[in-house]
Amino acid sequence: MKNWQKYLGLIISLLAVTLLAVWPLITSKPVDREVAFTILKGIALASSLNIILGYTGYVSFGHIVYFGLGGYIGFYLISQQGWSIYPSMLAGGLIAGLFAFLLGKAILRLRGAYFALATIGVNMAVLSFISNFDLLGGPIGMTLNFNIYKEYGGAAQALQLIFYLMVAITLITIIVSYLVRTSKFGLGLLAIREDEDAAEVMGVVAPNLKTWAYVLSAIFPGVIGVLFFFKNGSIEPHPAFPLHTSIELIVMVMLGGQGTVFGPILGAAAYQRMRGLLLTTPIFKNIQLSVAGVLLLIIVLFIPAGVVGWIRNRFPITRRVLQ
């Protein structure tokens, strides 16, 4: 195989994201940029989740906890400690990763439904703890002084910068996802997903591999949380840890195809687009949640491998391209 063909899966994925990033720059409409931002956020979060969910087979139902946790840490550093956005993003990601490491050591021993339940419990525990934690604003949360955007050349400039940062994070997430998928580490994860006991008998040190997969899949949501709430200007407990969004992320991964690099990209873009359309179409506006529910049901019942998985199974030749 020619060298560049080996990277085709990655190239296609990066190209898709780049196109999405360039689109609002061409139309230069702020509303398009907002749409693109939301889709990119979905792609990056879904791709991170895919590392533990799709590659490793652990259903992290409350994965949004890392988004909220990172968001809170970063927001605190920016608003209360006067840090700039860059080190705050780093700190948000690192703390999320550290928390995932400590927590993962404990809860990754649970399998199947027990693990899923535990992650829901963790999300709710952190949410209710932060609602009581005055240092982080308790139930009211925290707000940013808008003067803070001056540092970045004003609000408009800051928004532009935030968008570019989102693009960069998304690209990095996808590269990491690809590197994991095609590495020995990733192969070990896939083996754990298929049969953890058999994998261990073959020498896969499952407890370590699982933990690192979990840490990786937590770091990016932590970083994105900082960026998102910096853009948002305020942070509150419930919007920071929405269990609902957590499940939407799983839907994105499932829709596109879990365990593939391209799947979460496709799934996130399709889901966010669909959601946007439902919200703006009068007949669906009031029941958009129901329509989304029916679609989810159709995916689960009829194409559980997701779109990319389905294509890969149906047309094996595409496996080299759609990774």
Partner: peptide, 14 residues
């Protein structure tokens, strides 16, 4: 105990 959704080659590579 095959790793069902992996190729035969990948099973052995593991």
């Amino acid at each position: 105990k095959p790793l069902n959704e992996l190729s035969v080659l990948d099973n052995v590579i593991v």
